[in-house]
Simulated scan of single mutants.
Amino acid sequence: MKAVLCSQFCGPDDLVLTDIPDPVAGPGEAVIAIKSAALNFFDLLMIQGKYQVKPPFPFSPAAEIAGVIESVGAGVTDLKPGDRVAASIGHNGAREKVAVATTQIVKIPDNLDFDRAAGVIVIYGTALHALQDRADPKPGETLAVFGAAGGTGLAACELGKVLGLKVIACASSDEKLAFAKQHGAELTINYAKEDLKEALKRIGGDKGIDIVFDPVGGSFAEAGVRASAWKGRFLVIGFAGGEIPKIPLNLALLKGCDIRGVFWGAYMKRDPKDGRANLEKLMQWAADGKISSHVDRTFPLAQTTDALKVLAGRQAMGKVILHP
């Protein structure tokens, strides 16, 4: 079968498309014939050796997959060949087939296509865990989303609306903000045109912002904490801006606010039952049209390098999908 392999820490241009043996399902596993594999920004960091997870070489990028069960291993009774499924596998999605533990697999509704199913897992899983499980949201509260047109940011905008929050999209261009407004945002801030801290203060008023969702990091983080309401919640999602910020802790004292970490991957390992229930809920919401799982563009497996460059250039609004 074909696979895109990273054999040493490298950039997208150094990935190699090659043939590797077909996988065999072990006990408690199923082999999935991959129809769609979704890429994320952390795939770039992973192949460069800059991510907290460093798989053994050689590995393939792409953590999210959707496809059809081809075979099952010993002891598997809840899945059968032909079932339409999706899974979060951490890496190795940029290939034609993969063997996956059945505990990582969820079935997908018949009316949900493979591209959107693959794109739901990480970004919506992260956003739902952040907003539902970590933020303790109350209907009508304000939610400021940084990087609102990116994958996780867009998911937060949509899920914020589903959860009854007043969503404030923050992004670097009017085009991105218009896109976020189509996906649940009520108000917008262009932080390329105005100071983010002042804009949040203007919108939040004396009360401040109840929930800040930050997948960007860098200088934006401190602005978000400074804009937080009394008993506000600042959600640390990631550092797509490249810089891990250092927050003056006196701000948390003065605001009486919480700085809450959101590590979806660890949550899925530590609390797999609730994590799986969240994914099943999201798949149904996607099938019902409550969330868009918007696909920005698709690429054949042979063009994985080009797909990763779209992410590196911050060009994607929604998901970038590979078709093995």
Rank of each mutant, 00 (worst) to 15 (best):
A3D: 08
L5V: 15
S7T: 14
P12G: 01
D13W: 08
I20V: 15
P21M: 08
P23V: 04
E29R: 03
A37Y: 13
A38S: 15
F42P: 10
L45W: 14
Y51V: 10
P55F: 08
S60R: 07
P61T: 13
V68H: 04
D78V: 09
P81F: 10
A87K: 06
I89S: 00
A94R: 09
A94K: 10
K97W: 08
K97Y: 14
I105H: 05
V106C: 10
P109Q: 07
D115L: 08
R116M: 05
A118D: 13
I123N: 13
A127M: 09
Q132C: 03
R134E: 11
D136N: 13
D136P: 00
P137C: 12
K138Y: 04
A144G: 12
F146V: 07
G147L: 09
G150T: 12
A155N: 09
A155Q: 11
L159M: 10
K161R: 14
V162F: 06
L163T: 05
G164Y: 06
V167N: 01
V167W: 05
A169M: 12
A171W: 05
N190D: 15
L196V: 14
E198V: 06
K201Q: 14
K207E: 13
G208F: 10
F213E: 03
F213W: 09
P215G: 05
P215V: 11
G218K: 07
F220M: 07
F220E: 00
E222S: 00
G224R: 07
V225G: 02
A229N: 02
A229K: 01
L235H: 02
P245W: 11
P248F: 13
P248Y: 12
L251E: 06
L254G: 02
D258I: 01
W264A: 03
K269G: 00
R270D: 12
R270A: 14
P272W: 14
K273F: 11
R276T: 14
A277F: 00
E280D: 02
E280R: 09
K290N: 04
A307G: 04
A312K: 14
Q315S: 07
